[in-house]
Design a protein around this nucleic acid. Structure first.
Lengths: 331, 331
DNA sequence: TTGTACGCGTTATCAC
DNA sequence: GTGATAACGCGTACAA
């Protein structure tokens, strides 16, 4: 790796001049510029991002962090792609970390990113009171929340209208004549989950249906809990005729729980999931879902972050994207 | 962000002493150590990874790069998880990049990683002559190849026995009585693809079946090409009775191409895919596949990289993992 | 045992 | 226009 020193020596100028050539500062006469540029090429010089970052205040590291629960969850993979593509378009690199919904891991990675002097961070907070994230924001480091919001702190945020999505999903089931609709929800500390639950309750209430405790089960967003809870619900003496499942993995789990029971979907039990699934068309049956524009969530979050890096004091913005009910064969 | 200076001032010692405390150098008397540790805590000091990296030779950045074609491909997502988990276990952070099988993107990211002074890089080379990667290796930066190998350069490598996997897959079809077996392969510049193709040909040859050009189609590993090529094959006057599809996305594409034709799988056309699919059990039908131990590939690659960072001159190792034929309902 | 001072590769502020 | 030079935060050889 050639350094400024070596280039300067070769071009018989000072490192300052080389630096000026690199940074397009116009205060350099064309002749020396040419000499320097040749030396640059000959040595295959690449500036050290590390040295540059050490020297400069911030906002020019061209490096941002992304912390997500699990890259193997297609919803987050799609967000990650959105973030990454937007970052690449602006020549930013990305440090990606999986937190597994584990606050300790999240905290570890937040510290790494601070220590790396990233220009900013995109993440869905672990909970709406996420202490580590709140503390981080106090330091002034640009943070954009995606998917989930924080309770007491106002940040840039790109979210999806979860309430509206849940409302549409449950209304769709009600329109099909279902009245005993089971709910499989996730962790209640997560804002999105509470919104979806609220949508479920309000949709029922609007039709004068009282919610039933025994039809509402809380899991942990993972596939296995979807399977277990679906089985619990279907084991009831009076089982639900339809299920509203609050995320993608639990939806797959629920379907996996239903199959061995030889129940027909949707005739015996209908299913609506939150989050679309890759290759939904190849699933059995292709599930009706509330599709979130995850790629857009990621892309716009990165755009917001880039703007905040340029203008750190700009007031926080909330972008709310609309989900879309995709009706397939499970309802 | 507190610096060594500030901590030193607070503890009324020199920065050298603080640094010694941090780096567990034992040449510091317990009393001052305590004072320093308190100052450290009070200020919430975190060392700057950037400054540390600039100062030190290499191997201590605790940062590695991972370049994969596409994080939304579950095969690579699984590799990424394996790499990330192993990295986290050793307190390494990860820069993750998607190359989209695009050499320019790959080159850009390789340069970023060099400029970031990463300790090493894990990647599947774009092709077996991947110029940018070969050049990179010449610089001495530790590189571990996963999945795909390089033709002329010996590196640490974690691969899967693609030939064996393809052999088993096609033998399975032959055992079921199929003779007209279509092949949907990917880019031929990729070593894994050639191995799979060779397995297909050898399996046929072992039963005295001559390969037929019209039954062999080459795509680009993406879903759409699987759909298109499956349709091409099924449109033949004498269509194949079975398909061997060389990666996961093309398998989904092939299934999607078959469904609208109202053909029954496996009665009308059987399908074996390379790579397992998430939620395979929920697919219609659950496909028979050659499962690659992708998580292990990633995990072991990271282990190899860690070893090479410690001992840069150790001779390159090749780890070859065995794939597994998972028989489900599509054959 | 502790402190001083240098250098890692940049950028930016001065003089010249 | 160009060239020294001072930071940025850290680790360490060397001096005390």
């Amino acid at each position: 790796m050639a350094t400024l020193q070596e280039v300067a020596a070769r071009a018989r100028v000072s490192i300052a001049t080389v630096s000026r050539v690199l940074n397009k500062s116009d205060k350099v006469v064309p002749e020396t510029r040419l000499t320097v540029e040749q030396a640059l090429r000959e040595l295959g010089y690449r500036p050290s991002r590390v040295a540059r970052r050490l020297r400069m205040n911030s906002g020019r590291a061209h490096l941002v962090g992304l912390i997500i629960p699990d890259i193997q969850n297609p919803f987050y993979a799609e967000i990650a792609r959105g973030v990454e593509d937007a970052a690449y378009a602006s020549e930013y690199a990305l440090i990606l970390c999986n937190s597994d919904e584990n606050p300790d891991k999240e905290r570890f990675y937040l510290e790494v990113m601070q220590a790396e002097s990233v220009d900013g961070i995109v993440l869905p907070p672990f909970s709406d009171t996420d202490f580590a994230v709140v503390e981080l924001i106090k330091t002034g480091l640009p943070v954009v929340c995606v998917d989930r919001s924080l309770a007491k702190v106002k940040t840039d945020l790109v979210e999806v209208d979860n309430y509206q999505g849940a409302l549409e999903a449950v209304n769709h089931l009600l329109d099909k004549g279902h009245e005993r609709i089971g709910l499989i929800e996730g962790r209640s500390q997560v804002s999105t989950n509470r919104e979806r639950r609220r949508g479920y309750l309000d949709a029922l209430a609007a039709r004068g249906i009282a919610p039933r405790k025994e039809l509402m089960r809380a899991g942990d967003f993972k596939q296995e809990s979807g399977r277990v809870l679906a089985n619990e619900l279907l084991d009831l003496r009076k089982p639900p005729t339809a299920l509203f499942v609050c995320n993608n993995l639990m939806t797959v789990g629920a379907l996996a729980g239903i199959h061995p029971r030889r129940l027909r979907v949707p005739e015996d039990v209908a299913v609506v999931g939150f989050d679309d699934l890759p290759w939904a068309e190849a699933l059995d049956p292709p599930p009706t879902v509330v599709r979130q524009p995850a790629y857009e969530v990621g892309r716009q979050a990165m755009e917001l972050l880039l703007k905040r890096i340029v203008e750190p004091t700009r007031p926080p913005v909330t972008v709310r994207l609309r989900p879309e009910l995709v009706v397939r064969k499970s309802t």
